[in-house]
């Protein structure tokens, strides 16, 4: 249970792992944009995106199966949107009907389109979380949000809150485990009854957890004060993020992908004719 805290980070030393987290975040966003740019019926664009994910995965040393498994988290959502498209899209040519259910060719195409879109986005995004630790992610987000400082957004505080939250996940999981055991020892029943009963049974877990978290927060604040925390601008940073040739290369590849997708959108008909 302890490992949940590290998200789905896959520890390895690879080209992608060593990239700057800021660049990885930006490139992931650019990749998602590329997936959205693929126009309906232009499936070669999706093929290009898939090719990109496969190559990036090879360079990250993350087993491809793990990337595929990450789709599981959104599987319900994928199936739901596909089913809705298939059964309730009444545009296009009718292929088959039974009572009120009408299946059209456009419905099928749209379903395939949505499934491909979501799957590709999830694969790309999970590659980011597989190769970047939560701490790096928080640092990267802080650095990217730096311009917001000029509109008085408390960037540093925001990042600190994020990283402390990450740090306390394993501690709180342990605490929850302990409280559940303690309540079980007192005869609490978490396993039987319908969903409402079970939800109600969690109240004696949540309240002690909340109270102990508040106490922890108090102590942590004291410990931070004791270590001279003032939140001032004079604070220095120990970790420095550096852009290397890897990031430049990654940037070029993603730029190439976007150009490719736009190109395929425009010249798809030309290619099919040839």
């Amino acid at each position: 249970m302890r490992d949940i805290a590290f998200g789905q980070y896959y520890p390895a030393k690879s080209f992608v792992h060593n990239m700057d987290p800021r660049v990885k975040i930006l490139l992931s966003i650019a990749y998602i944009v590329a997936v959205f740019l693929v126009a309906p019926f232009h499936y070669l664009g999706f093929a290009a995106c898939l090719l990109f994910v496969i190559i990036a995965t090879l360079f990250s040393k993350v087993p491809f199966l793990r990337i595929l498994k990450s789709i599981k988290a959104v599987l319900f959502f994928v199936i739901l949107s596909a089913v809705l498209q298939i059964f309730f899209n009444t545009n296009g040519n009718l292929l088959w009907s039974w009572g009120i259910i009408k299946i059209t060719d456009e419905g099928l195409f749209n379903a395939g389109f949505i499934v491909a879109r979501i799957t590709l986005i999830v694969m790309g995004a999970s590659l980011l979380t597989f190769t970047t630790t939560p701490v790096e992610l928080a640092d990267g987000i802080e650095s990217l949000m730096y311009p917001l400082k000029f509109i008085k957004f408390p960037v540093h505080d925001f990042a600190l809150v994020m990283s402390i939250a990450l740090r306390f996940i394993p501690t709180l999981i342990e605490e929850t485990d302990r409280i559940i055991k303690a309540q079980k020892a007192r005869g609490a029943d978490f396993e039987s009854g319908n969903i409402f009963r079970r939800a109600k049974a969690l109240i004696p877990v949540l309240i002690p957890l909340l109270i102990s978290s508040l106490r922890r927060a108090d102590e942590l604040a004291d410990a931070m004060d004791a270590r001279c925390y003032s939140g001032s601008d004079k604070r220095t940073r120990y970790k420095k993020m550096k852009i290397t040739y890897r990031d430049v290369l990654g940037f070029l590849v993603v730029a190439g992908l976007i150009t490719g997708v736009v190109f395929l959108n425009k010249f798809y008909i030309l290619i099919t004719v040839l």
């Binding site: 701490v135 740090r167 102590e219 410990a223 931070m224 270590r227 001279c228 925390y229 970790k239």
Partner: peptide, 18 residues
């Protein structure tokens, strides 16, 4: 309740950073 960062070296760095 005293450790601030999720990596040992980052936590030790917290004081001097401040």
């Amino acid at each position: 309740n005293q450790l601030i960062a999720s990596i040992v070296e980052d936590d030790v760095a917290f004081g001097p950073e401040n």
